[in-house]
Measured scan of single mutants.
Amino acid sequence: MTSCHIAEEHIQKVAIFGGTHGNELTGVFLVKHWLENGAEIQRTGLEVKPFITNPRAVKKCTRYIDCDLNRIFDLENLGKKMSEDLPYEVRRAQEINHLFGPKDSEDSYDIIFDLHNTTSNMGCTLILEDSRNNFLIQMFHYIKTSLAPLPCYVYLIEHPSLKYATTRSIAKYPVGIEVGPQPQGVLRADILDQMRKMIKHALDFIHHFNEGKEFPPCAIEVYKIIEKVDYPRDENGEIAAIIHPNLQDQDWKPLHPGDPMFLTLDGKTIPLGGDCTVYPVFVNEAAYYEKKEAFAKTTKLTLNAKSIRCCLH
């Protein structure tokens, strides 16, 4: 018999989150649709729960009410004593943790798909938090293969000092899905179709896995975050240069030392320094102006996964 890495157990509980950011409308629209008619997301033997994560922000069509829901799922915020004085999103995070967690427990949901849009030209993107997770690498390989020839990129946010504390991190297997470009507060049919297909293929993978299909060893190309880059700023902290036209919409493309990065209003080009080629992502993302992030630098690498098969009882 072929030796293989056996994944822990079959997958039982899956959640699909929309509206973690209330103005990213593809996930909101799909989740609302699936709450009314969820036939397309159901798979035999699998509990799939669509869920609106930040209903107040969705109602106002804004990213958040008090603070970013997708950055506060750490033990400090989840452990705060519940009171009306807490920011709305912290209270909501505790409610979500109660419903789908608790985080880092045996009772937490197996998989959470968190649906997002970006204003950046990132196409279909899967966000991975753990480079050693054979199950998710296999799932992402399946999704990428199923979507081809449509490109699907994998963004690895594993980093020693950049801690995200994402909404989906309460699950055993957290999956971020990011599709763009799409303006905030807008629905685009092409973007919706791409996100819908990503979810379909992900659920198909889980179904095949649960039925005992063995997935042979595989490898995927990923883009691992190195650092986030702020806009150049003046002495008052105001933005002093904008994304250069040569960099705009060039997510995932190589940016070499000396290539144009920013452009000042008086026409001066600010190039990339250093001696390493990087791959920019979230270029000129609207939501990241407040976070002082013009783009993120990534490096390209390959992740390998062992063969996996479900432990059938």
Rank of each mutant, 00 (worst) to 15 (best):
S3T: 14
I6P: 15
I6M: 14
A7L: 13
A7H: 14
E8F: 10
E8M: 15
E8H: 15
E9A: 11
H10C: 13
I11E: 03
Q12M: 06
Q12R: 15
K13G: 01
V14M: 01
I16F: 03
I16H: 02
G18R: 04
G18K: 05
T20M: 04
T20P: 03
G22V: 08
G22L: 08
G22W: 08
T26F: 01
G27D: 06
V28L: 13
L30I: 01
L30M: 07
V31W: 03
K32E: 10
H33G: 13
W34L: 02
L35F: 07
N37E: 10
G38Y: 10
E40V: 05
Q42M: 10
Q42P: 04
R43K: 06
R43S: 00
R43L: 00
T44F: 08
G45M: 01
G45N: 10
L46F: 13
E47D: 12
V48L: 04
P50V: 04
F51D: 01
T53V: 12
T53W: 01
N54F: 01
P55E: 14
P55G: 08
V58H: 06
V58F: 07
K60E: 13
K60A: 14
K60R: 12
T62W: 10
T62M: 13
Y64Q: 13
Y64D: 06
I65W: 07
D66K: 07
D66R: 02
C67V: 13
D68M: 03
I72Q: 14
I72M: 15
F73G: 12
N77V: 12
L78I: 12
G79T: 14
G79L: 11
K80R: 14
K81M: 14
S83N: 13
E84F: 13
E84D: 14
D85E: 13
L86S: 12
L86W: 10
P87Q: 12
P87C: 11
P87S: 11
P87I: 08
Y88A: 07
Y88L: 08
E89A: 02
V90I: 14
R91F: 12
E95G: 08
H98V: 13
H98C: 13
F100Y: 10
F100R: 03
F100L: 07
G101C: 07
K103M: 12
K103S: 11
K103Y: 10
S105I: 10
E106C: 12
E106F: 11
S108G: 13
Y109A: 06
I111S: 02
I111V: 15
I111M: 07
F113M: 07
L115E: 05
L115T: 02
L115V: 02
H116K: 11
N117R: 03
N117H: 03
N117Y: 05
T119V: 09
S120E: 04
S120V: 06
S120P: 01
G123H: 05
G123M: 01
G123L: 02
C124V: 07
T125N: 03
I127L: 10
S131L: 05
R132E: 14
R132Y: 08
N133Y: 02
N134Y: 10
N134E: 15
F135L: 07
I137A: 02
H141R: 06
Y142A: 01
I143C: 02
I143T: 05
K144F: 00
P149Q: 00
L150C: 11
P151S: 08
P151V: 03
P151I: 01
V154S: 01
V154E: 05
V154T: 06
L156W: 09
L156N: 06
L156K: 01
E158W: 03
A165F: 10
A165L: 09
T166S: 14
T167L: 10
S169H: 09
I170Q: 05
K172E: 02
Y173T: 08
I177W: 05
E178T: 15
P181R: 02
Q184I: 09
G185C: 06
G185E: 05
V186G: 03
D190E: 11
D190Y: 03
D190V: 07
D193V: 11
R196P: 06
R196H: 04
K197V: 10
K197A: 13
K197D: 09
K200N: 12
K200I: 11
H201D: 03
A202R: 04
L203N: 02
L203H: 05
L203E: 03
L203V: 01
D204R: 05
D204N: 07
F205Q: 04
I206M: 01
H208V: 13
E211R: 12
E211Q: 14
G212E: 01
K213M: 15
K213W: 12
F215D: 00
F215N: 06
A219R: 08
I220N: 02
E221T: 07
K224L: 01
I225M: 15
E227S: 07
V229R: 03
D230G: 09
D230M: 14
Y231T: 01
P232S: 04
P232D: 02
P232V: 01
R233W: 03
R233F: 06
E235K: 11
N236F: 10
E238Y: 05
I239P: 09
H244P: 03
H244M: 06
P245E: 01
N246D: 12
Q248F: 04
D251L: 05
W252V: 03
K253Q: 12
K253Y: 06
L255F: 07
G258W: 07
P260I: 02
M261P: 02
F262I: 04
L263R: 07
L263D: 05
L265N: 09
D266L: 01
K268S: 09
T269Q: 07
T269L: 07
I270C: 00
I270S: 01
L272Y: 15
L272Q: 06
L272R: 05
G273R: 10
D275V: 07
C276H: 14
T277P: 08
Y279R: 04
Y279E: 05
P280F: 03
V281M: 10
N284F: 03
N284A: 08
A286S: 12
Y288F: 15
Y289R: 15
E290D: 13
K291Q: 11
E293L: 13
E293R: 11
A296E: 08
A296D: 07
A296F: 08
K297E: 03
T299H: 11
T299E: 13
K300A: 04
T302L: 10
N304Q: 13
A305G: 08
K306A: 13
S307C: 08
I308M: 10
R309V: 09
R309L: 04
C310N: 13
H313D: 15
H313C: 11
